[in-house]
Design a protein around this nucleic acid. Structure first.
Lengths: 391, 391
DNA sequence: TTGTTCCATCAAGTAAGTTGAGTTAATCGG
DNA sequence: CCGATTAACTCAACTTACTTGATGGAACAA
């Protein structure tokens, strides 16, 4: 959720300017490297307008010249690319027991990442920790504060007073706080607040499996299971900011109907392993068990395939994404095993002849996925205008 | 699907102008009646800009003055409202055996509606029928052609070569035709192509249960079952235009897992009734059976509740809409019965204390729902800019 | 009555993109 | 090798649509 109600506003010169700069940045990012004339053609702006904007962006250091690239006839266009050092994004993930932080450069590369345990999850402690991590990140990566475009904050959803409570991951001390206002004030920069799945989904777009995709779905393994939906380059957050609660949908599992995350999630794997006497609190343990072909883990995997297949089928049919991406706090090996085992039905709108991507892809994995995603929110928004106009 | 790839384009004076006119129209429609100053505040434009735009829209006859409304202190603002006769939208629904057409005024009221049987569903016959219906509609409602803002075309999805084939509702003769180009040429006006569920969803926004809602989901009873998702006032069509194929998702039904529309759809009801020796080809028959408390229909309804509940739970959790609306080609009584019987789980992100709408609502019903929706696409787009900017 | 408040208009000002002519730098073809 | 062709790019007016600031008008309140 953006934590601010979106309102449709009118256009004026100032807003057009900012919009057009974002459009140009977005094209540069999408192409990796482009000339002005091509940007003009793609964006429907005049070459002159693009020239002016490019000059501005060069001035600000957001992009860099890459020399001429001879293509066909005519004068070869000067190429431009994003300047990795042109802007940085600070990402923070707040959990009840710890704060994770990361700093990404404009190209989506991680230049700093850190975990800090929390003695308490009250607002004072968390805020102090976040501010300390920010200072540390800027110092470690030698980045001037003015170069930081904004901060993404990941907090456990769902947002607002909903029927889902007591899952243990909530920050009860934060219930009456609007995190958007709070962190805007504390950090003194633009702030974006999302849940872990949404943020992780964005990470794939900025530097990952969803590079170049405009519409996709990301299934996120956290403690439970989340879904981030990107449509037209923007997150679909729902009316109250809680879209993507895929963990609670009913799916078939061994003849009965269960909530998806009771069968497919790290917590469910750990519970299953515990019944076999195996304690696997950490990802590394799971990775080991997977590599050694542990029977208990294998049993859990086998059992997870049916509900996961159902969930992906549902996502494909409801959202018609370019691809479904599986990622999050799970070992690559586990994700790969699941992807290999899921047999998607041929009888689906997703079974197209003109696909450009596989239907199911593995995305970024590991504990930091959501944190990197928090920062990715900022980078994505710097390159994505709020407008999508039919061309 | 919009049938044209959406591309992010830059802003210029011309596009800003058209955008701002849409913003103003959208505010007038949303409010029913507003003054200029209020529009200016809501849209972030200057009062002068709003004044100019209002003058333009008055000139064009899109809006009408409604006199002053004294509110608080100060000079009472002159109120404006949409002029119902300011614009019309032509809606067409093409089925293998018939063409439905409707003409809506700018306020969303039906001024003409008609069904025409098709001897053949080839392009020539269909196109001639559509053109004849258009002429008839304009003549019957005494609407000058220039007042028609565009045409919405509803055709059976899914679009493109997908794994879903042979459902019998396809127009095989149209497979190699781009309906957007085809009807743009034939009708000589802006054209929008969508599937039935998406169009019907839009109808609710223009004149129905979703008035004033920005994000909602519409479950559409056609022959099968479809889903239209509106997010931020715009249809979510997915990467290939086939989002909302809810009929094919797996749901629990009496201990087994089935495809939703095999248990919840008109076709499934008719099949069930047929096993009891009842032939109910028409909606009226179903309505009668429902009113007389027919045992076979009741059995079907009882059986449909579980899978429908699961589907709605899935939709609520994945999309977090303001409400889920049930509508389409089913009798009101049947829909009402289903709505009454569905018990949604309290443990859901949709169970909020700050809801403004019930979680489940009945929408428009009857055979014409999708046809009216086709026209509604046009009206909605006339009042909805492609921009949504955080305010 | 007089002050306050808010709506609305006028006239000038401004920002940003567009237009069209002209320049530069490649490839193509004889 | 050289002119024709093609395409990228620049310069300097031009245009458009919104903004600003001053002024007038209509209702309410004290």
């Amino acid at each position: 959720m953006s934590a601010r109600p979106e309102n449709i506003v009118g256009a004026n010169a100032e807003r057009s300017r900012s919009h057009n700069r974002q459009v140009v940045l977005g094209r540069v990012r999408a192409a990796g490297q482009v000339g002005r004339a091509e940007i003009a053609r793609a964006s429907g702006l005049s070459t002159q307008a693009v020239s002016n904007i490019i000059a501005d962006l060069l001035d600000q250091g957001m992009i860099v010249e890459q020399g001429r690239r001879a293509a066909a006839r005519g004068q070869p266009p000067v190429q431009y690319a994003l300047n990795p050092a042109g802007g940085y994004a600070f990402g923070v993930e707040i959990r009840p027991d710890a704060v994770f932080a990361a700093l990404l450069d404009f190209a989506g590369r991680t230049v700093f990442s850190e975990r800090r345990s929390l003695a308490s999850s009250d607002r004072g402690t968390v805020t102090a920790t976040v501010l300390a991590l920010k200072a540390e990140a800027l110092a470690a990566a030698d980045v001037p504060g003015a170069r930081v475009l904004g901060a993404g904050i990941v907090m456990p959803g769902p947002f607002g007073a909903t029927g889902i409570r007591g899952s243990g991951s909530e920050l009860t001390a934060w219930e009456d706080t609007d995190p958007f206002t709070w962190f805007s004030d504390a950090l003194g920069m633009p702030v974006f607040v999302e849940n872990d799945a949404n943020a992780a989904a964005m990470a794939e777009r900025v530097s990952g499996a969803a590079a170049g995709m405009e519409s996709y779905a990301f299934i996120y393994f956290g403690a439970g299971l989340g879904l981030g939906v990107v449509s037209g380059g923007r997150l679909m957050t729902g009316a109250f900011g809680n879209a993507g609660e895929i963990g609670h949908i009913p799916v078939p599992c061994g003849g009965e109907t269960v909530a998806l995350e009771s069968a497919v999630s790290r917590l469910s794997a750990q519970r299953h392993l515990a019944t076999a006497g195996i304690d696997a609190p950490r990802l590394e343990t799971l990775a080991e068990l997977c590599e050694t072909g542990d029977r208990a883990l294998r049993a859990w995997l086998d059992r997870a395939v049916e509900p996961l297949t159902a969930a992906i089928t549902i996502v494909e049919n409801l959202l018609d994404p370019q691809a479904v991406i599986l990622g999050g706090a799970m070992p690559d090996t586990v994700l790969d095993h699941l992807i290999g085992a899921v047999a998607l039905p041929d009888r689906s709108v997703a079974n197209r002849t003109d696909r450009t991507h596989p239907r199911l892809i593995r995305g970024a994995s590991g504990r930091m996925t959501a944190t990197l995603g928090a920062a990715a929110l900022v980078i994505n928004l710097a390159c994505t205008p709020k407008i999508a106009v039919a061309h």
